[in-house]
């Protein structure tokens, strides 16, 4: 007797290098999920690297208690750099999603045929908004549009919780970046 239970269990790995705001955007996703009443865990990579080195984090969102915050085969990987893609492309679950920052990644990802690959020029969109640093928010917007746990606008409500106060002036820009990321995905089909 195998019971099929259709409950929410979303695992996502966000990976790039230090300085890209990987940890911040993971925290934002986790915070928004918590506000949406979901069970959530956030697990950062922690190591000697502070800037320039590899950085990644794992977020699990569910409507049931989460057994492990450490994700080995996530439904979705967001790869912000070439090195991040190389490290995590093989971990994406069958039928999952791989979001690629095509501004930095010019190679064809090695993934199962069932994985949907979403290429988006994240850095270019951010630069187009006038601040390369909001690339992480563009990525999150794209992710939310694709996987739809909640909307980019809902996520943006948690920005004040995770951003240091001195950055609160750029909350509107961050929100805009998320919307741009979502729009790109909407308009470019696949």
């Amino acid at each position: 007797m195998v019971k099929q239970i259709n409950h929410l269990y979303e695992e996502v790995t966000i990976a790039g290098f230090g300085g890209q705001g990987i940890i911040l955007v993971g925290k934002l996703l986790a915070q928004a999920a918590m506000k949406a009443g979901k069970e959530v865990t956030f697990m950062p990579s922690y190591g000697a690297e502070v800037r320039g080195g590899a950085s990644n984090c794992m977020v699990v969102i569910s409507d049931q208690p989460i057994p492990s915050p450490v994700v080995s085969n996530p439904q979705c990987v967001i790869a912000m750099s070439k090195a991040a893609l190389a490290k995590f492309e093989k971990t994406v679950k069958k039928g999952g999603t791989l979001i690629i920052n095509s501004s930095q990644i010019d190679v064809q990802p090695k993934v199962d045929d069932s994985v949907e690959v979403v290429k988006i020029p994240i850095d270019e969109i951010a630069v187009g908004l006038g601040n390369a640093k909001v690339a992480n928010m563009v990525a999150l917007g794209a992710y939310l549009q694709k996987r739809g746990v909640f909307s980019p606008d809902e996520a943006a409500e948690s920005l004040p919780d995770v951003l240091a106060e001195r950055y609160h002036v750029i909350i509107p820009l961050n929100k805009k970046a998320m919307q741009k990321g979502a729009e790109f995905v909407k308009n470019n089909g696949k």
Binding site: K27, A30, M34, E39, V40, T41, F42, M43, P44, Y46, I66, S68, P69, V70
Partner: peptide, 10 residues
Amino acid sequence: DGILGQMMEP
């Protein structure tokens, strides 16, 4: 352990 120390949850 390192997971408990580093992870965040509500």
